[in-house]
Simulated assay, not measured.
Amino acid sequence: MLSIEANLQAAIESLIASGSETPALDAAVLMCHALDKPRSYLLTWPERELDDAQQVNFDDLLAKRIGGQPVAYIVGEREFWSLPLEVAPSTLIPRADTERLVELALEKIPAIEGDILDLGTGTGAIALALASEFPTRHVIGIDLQPEAQQLATRNGQKLNLTNAEFLQGSWFEPLAEHSEFACIVSNPPYIDKMDPHLAQGDVRFEPLTALVAEEKGLADLSYIADNARQYLKAGGWLLMEHGYDQGSAVRQILTKAGYQHVTTEQDYGHNDRVTLGCWLNS
C-alpha cells in the first residue's frame, strides 16, 4: 500500500495535469477527509500507509476533483471567517474575498444600534460571521431556496450562534412589517449571463440562480439598493458585494437612490468588490 506522502505526491501530479490552481492544498484537504484526520497528522506521519478502505476513499475523492468538482462540495465543508461551514451544491461556496464585506460591516455596525440583515444568505456565511462578532445583535439571513435556508440554519445550530435566524423567501418578502436594520449586507447574483467565466473552474458546478442576474449582472444589486431604503434605520448602512468591473455602476445606483457617503472598497486581490452607502433619510 502507498504511504500518505506517496499518495500526496501522485495526487499533486494528477491535479496539476487536470488544471487545478491549488494542487497541493487540494490533495491535502482530500487526504485529511479520507483519513478523518487534521492537517498536522499528514505532516507528523507521512510514512503511514493507507489501508484498503482509506485508499479507495481517497482515490474516489481525487477522481472527483480531477473531474472538476469543487473541493468544498466533495468534502461538504468550507471555512469562512474561521467558522467551519457545511456546504452543498444548492449554495455558493464561501470565498475569502467575501470576508472583506464582513470586515467593512464590522467598521460600520458599532455606530448604530439595531439588527443586521443578510440577503441571499446561502450557507449563512456572512450572517454567521457577523453573529459571531456581535453576539448581542439579532442577525437575520434570507434566501430564496429552501435548501439554502435549511443549510444555513444547520450551520447556525452547529456553531451555537443562537442570535442568528434564517428565513426563506425572495429578498425582503419574509420580513415582518416595519422591520428596521442598522446594517443590510448582501452578496447577490451579479454575473452577466454571457460572462465566459461561468464555464470555467469551480463556478461550473455552482447554482446559476446564485450567480447570474439580468441587466448585465446589475438587476439584483439595483433591486436591493432601491428596496433597502424602507428597512434601514436613519444612519444605517447598505453593503453589497459585486463584480470587479461593477464598482462605478453600483456607486451610481446607490447615489441615484439617495444614499450618502457612497464608496467602493477593494478585495484582497486589489479588485473593486464591495460598494457601501449610508441611508440618512428614514
Rank of each mutant, 00 (worst) to 15 (best):
A88S: 15
W279N: 04
N7T: 03
Q157P: 03
L42W: 07
Y73D: 10
L161P: 02
F172W: 10
N7H: 07
L25A: 12
Q157E: 15
P135W: 07
E113Y: 06
F205V: 11
L198W: 12
V203L: 15
Q157D: 15
S282W: 10
D26E: 09
H261D: 15
P174G: 10
R100T: 15
R78P: 01
W171L: 15
R78C: 02
N163A: 08
G124L: 08
L117R: 02
H270F: 12
L30Q: 02
K216N: 15
G76V: 13
V87T: 11
T209P: 06
P38F: 09
T275G: 08
T153D: 13
A27H: 04
L43C: 10
H33Q: 04
V102S: 06
V71Y: 08
L254Q: 00
L130M: 13
L218M: 12
E177M: 09
Q145F: 09
I93G: 01
M194I: 11
Q200P: 05
G269E: 07
L239F: 07
F166D: 01
I184Q: 03
E215Q: 15
N187C: 12
A257Q: 12
D115C: 13
K158N: 15
S14Y: 03
H178G: 13
G258M: 10
G201E: 11
L238P: 01
S179K: 13
V250T: 07
R78A: 03
S18K: 01
E107A: 13
A10N: 07
